[in-house]
């Protein structure tokens, strides 16, 4: 137990949490935007996987990590726009279409990788590029905080900055407020002249952009290769983080960090002879509990609002 506590309160552990949380924070923020726009994106997983794969392949082909990043983001956004097109134009069921895209990504990435490398496991035989790790001057020399805040991957910093930007976008900018209005009540939004479909395209496109960044981080930051189904459910954990975080950017960020911590803990506890499977369960069980808690809180809120309404009527 003492050993476990020592592990948790070490600077290396906290640095690891930031590393492991990054590919949950980014898609969760993306999912949050689409959720608030009334078009919850279940295809985050597939978008991440596609971005992770195309990023690596293009970075290998061009030997440029930046072109890899670009390719990953473009492919992710495209996939999100395909979802938007099927749902908004062809009136396909959003959930079923998203499930189809997840299957497409899972099968399509391996199909392409196998075609190019003859290996079904992934691209570990290829020499791929990695996004840069950033040493922050001055901060890196501060004890304890230095190793946590400095030396992380570029995309880890991007994830935290994205949380702030998404927050400003959703609550301080016209487009974000319109987007939330559409999610809250599309008819009302339409009646005041907001283009509902355009807002929902924007919401899905942005969710694709952020999820793609998370995917690129996985294959070009966290590691340096693409592996079969390497997202391993992070796209869905990200969805859960949105609910656990009460559908707010800060809450989502914190929830994603909690999931990341559970994940990092599983790795650390593996060395301490605690069965890794049981530790790995923690984030999933936490999510299930969080879903229930969130629902109960929501319900209490509605009941309280109804009571207030009735009291106001009586008065």
């Amino acid at each position: 137990m003492e050993q476990a506590l020592q592990v948790i309160f070490s600077a290396t552990f906290i640095a690891a949490v930031l590393r492991v949380s990054t590919p949950i924070i980014l898609p969760a923020l993306g999912g949050l935007i689409s959720e608030l726009g009334g078009v919850g994106n279940i295809a985050l997983e597939g978008i991440m996987l596609t971005a992770a794969c195309s990023g690596v392949l293009i970075s290998v082909a061009t030997q440029s990590e930046w072109l890899g990043l670009l390719a990953g983001v473009v492919s992710g956004v495209l996939l999100a726009l395909v979802l938007a097109f099927f749902h908004l134009n062809l009136k396909a069921d959003l959930i079923l279409a998203a499930i189809a895209l997840n299957i497409l990504a899972s099968g399509g990435t391996i199909f392409v990788v196998y075609l190019l490398t003859g290996d079904k496991g992934g691209t570990s035989t290829l020499i791929s590029k990695q996004m840069p790790f950033i040493e922050i001057p001055i901060i890196k020399d501060i004890p304890v905080i230095g190793p946590i805040l400095s030396g992380q991957n570029l995309l880890t910093y991007v994830a935290f900055i994205a949380a702030a930007v998404v927050s400003i976008f959703l609550y301080r900018m016209r487009a974000g407020i319109h987007l939330r209005a559409v999610g809250e009540n599309p008819e009302a939004a339409r009646s005041v002249g907001i283009n509902v479909r355009a807002q929902q395209y924007l919401a899905l496109g942005l969710s694709g952009f952020l999820a793609a960044l998370g995917g690129v981080y996985l294959s070009m930051g966290y590691v340096k290769f693409f592996a079969r189904d390497m997202t391993a459910g992070r796209g869905f954990i990200a969805l859960a983080a949105i609910y656990l975080g009460g559908k707010s950017p800060v809450g989502t960020l914190i929830a994603a960090l909690v999931f990341g911590a559970a994940d990092a803990l599983a790795v650390q506890l593996g060395n301490l002879k605690i069965p890794s499977q049981l530790v790995q369960m923690i984030p999933y069980v936490a999510t299930l509990i969080a879903l229930v808690v969130y629902a109960l809180v929501q319900r209490q809120r509605i009941i309280a609002r109804q009571r207030k309404f009735r009291e106001a009527q009586a008065a």
Binding site: L90, A92, A100, L101, I103, L104, G107, G108, I110, F111
Partner: peptide
């Protein structure tokens, strides 16, 4: 995996 791709296309087209 091309079968998975075909599966995805079937679901997409059917749901639309």
């Amino acid at each position: 995996e091309i079968v998975l791709v075909i599966q995805a296309v079937i679901i997409l087209l059917l749901t639309a």
